[in-house]
C-alpha cells in the first residue's frame, strides 16, 4: 500500500454528540485499500500553536464514492479546529498508515471493545469482518449516555452491548465490569480493542488469563506517522517499536503489559 499525501475535500461534517463529529472526506485520487486499525495523519490548518498533524483511525471507506469517514473526538486544540472544517474545504491527510487488526477467520467468534474515539475502528471491523452477525459482539463503553454515538448503521453487523460509568445507559461501570466478562467471555476466539490505555490494559489482562487472542490499538504521541521520527515508540518485548509503522495494532502478548 503506497502512502500518499492526499488533499481530500470535506463533503460532510456531522456532529454526532457534544464532542464527536463524523467527517466524510472525498479523495481526488484513487484510494488504496485501508483496513480497521489503520489510520491517517491529518494536517490542522491555520490553528495557533498546532504544528504537527493529528492521527485519526478510519471509521469507514467507500470505494465507489472514493470517500473515507473519520470519527473526530474533541480532545484538544487540534481536534477542535478540525471539527470546525466546513464542506468544500481541503483537508490534507497522509493515507493509509499503520497496520490493521488481524481479520478474523471464518467461524471465529469475536468480541470488539471500544471506548472513546476507539469506537471507530471497532465499528469498521464489525462491518468488514465478513462474519455471521451472531458471531460478532461489540461492547462500547463511555462515561455517560450522552457520550455514546449512534450505532444504528452498524446494528446489522453484530450484537451490541453498552456500559456507562454512571449507569445512565447500558450496564453501570467500566467496560471491564460488564457482565459479558463473567457470563460468556470463554466463548470468544478473538478480542479486539481500541480506547483508553487503562481500559485496554484491563482487557488485555483478562484475555491473557483466559488465553484468548487479543489485539489492542495504541495511540502514542507521534510526529510523522510513517516511521521517520521514531517518537511514538512502545517498549515491547522485542524492544522499542514504532506505533505508527509496527502498530498501532499489537498483540497484547507482545507488549510489556
Amino acid at each position: 500500500m503506497k502512502k500518499t499525501v492526499i488533499d481530500f475535500v470535506l463533503l460532510e461534517n456531522k456532529q454526532l454528540n457534544k464532542d464527536n463529529f463524523q467527517l466524510v472526506l472525498q479523495s481526488p485520487i484513487l484510494l488504496s485499500d485501508i483496513f480497521p486499525g489503520q489510520f491517517t495523519n491529518v494536517e490542522i490548518k491555520d490553528a495557533k500553536d498546532i504544528f504537527l498533524r493529528r492521527p485519526f483511525s478510519v471509521l469507514d471507506i467507500n470505494y465507489q464514492q472514493q470517500t473515507i469517514s473519520l470519527l473526530v473526538k474533541i480532545l484538544g486544540k487540534g481536534s477542535k479546529k478540525l471539527t470546525e472544517t466546513i464542506p468544500g474545504q481541503t483537508v490534507s491527510a497522509i493515507f493509509p498508515l499503520g497496520k490493521s487488526f488481524t481479520l478474523p477467520q471464518k467461524n471465529d467468534k469475536i468480541l470488539l471493545i471500544g471506548g472513546g474515539s476507539g469506537v471507530a475502528p471497532m465499528l469498521f471491523l464489525s462491518k468488514i469482518c465478513g462474519l455471521n452477525p451472531d458471531y460478532v459482539h461489540i461492547l462500547i463503553g463511555a462515561k455517560t449516555k450522552s457520550d455514546h454515538i449512534g450505532i444504528s448503521d452498524y446494528k446489522q453487523y453484530g450484537q451490541f452491548y453498552f456500559s456507562t460509568e454512571d449507569g445512565s445507559f447500558g450496564e453501570k461501570g467500566y467496560v471491564t465490569n460488564h457482565s459479558i466478562f463473567t457470563t460468556q467471555i470463554e466463548r470468544f476466539d478473538k478480542i479486539y480493542t481500541c480506547g483508553p490505555v487503562l481500559m485496554m490494559k484491563a482487557i488485555g489482562k483478562i484475555a491473557k488469563e483466559k488465553n484468548i487472542f487479543c489485539e489492542v490499538s495504541l495511540e502514542n504521541m507521534m510526529a510523522c506517522g510513517f516511521g521517520a521520527c521514531l517518537c511514538c515508540v512502545e517498549d515491547t518485548k522485542a524492544g522499542h517499536k514504532c506505533v505508527c509503522t509496527d502498530g498501532p495494532v499489537f498483540n497484547v502478548n507482545d507488549l510489556k503489559w
Partner: peptide, 15 residues
C-alpha cells in the same frame, strides 16, 4: 534502543 517514551513534545512553531 534510544530513550524511553515519551520522546516528543509539540511546541509553538516546532517540536
Amino acid at each position: 534502543e534510544g530513550n524511553a517514551y515519551p520522546r516528543m513534545a509539540e511546541t509553538p512553531s516546532g517540536m
